[in-house]
């Protein structure tokens, strides 16, 4: 892979992860604000982590996000706000840190 290709891949990964972060951020804020659309926005986040990202390099992260989200959904259904939010906060931070790491590549 040429440096140019590497940069293009890093940009594609960043774009993909930014989309995930945006959906997760919207979902978290809507849960905080008890929006009636929170469940729909959680669904958007779920869709954004369902499939492999550019080049498959972030599959380890996506798998962690899927696991955290599955449990967050379970705690959301049980109305256990602290357990749900802990998972969504950590998920957001995992994505953010990965974006920061990719930006330096």
């Amino acid at each position: 892979m040429s440096p140019k290709d590497g940069r293009a891949m890093a940009s594609a990964r960043t774009a993909h992860l930014l989309g995930i972060a945006a959906n997760l951020n919207m979902a978290t804020i809507s849960l905080w604000g008890q929006s009636p659309r929170a469940a729909a926005i959680l669904g958007m986040f779920e869709a954004s982590i369902r499939w492999e990202g550019p080049g498959g390099s972030d599959e380890d992260l996506l798998e962690r996000l899927r696991n955290l989200f599955e449990e967050a959904k379970k705690y959301h259904a049980r109305e256990d706000f602290p357990a749900m939010m802990a998972r969504l906060r950590v998920a957001y931070d995992l994505v953010s840190i990965r974006i920061i790491e990719v930006s330096g590549e």
């Binding site: 962690r64 955290l68 705690y75 256990d80 706000f81 802990a86 998972r87």
Partner: peptide, 22 residues
């Protein structure tokens, strides 16, 4: 589960997918 019981079940914050984080 009551709100109080939920709030005191702190194991939910360090178990499952949170275990490797913790």
């Amino acid at each position: 589960m009551t709100e109080t019981e939920k709030q005191h079940d702190i194991s939910t914050l360090t178990s499952g997918a949170m275990a490797p984080i913790w």
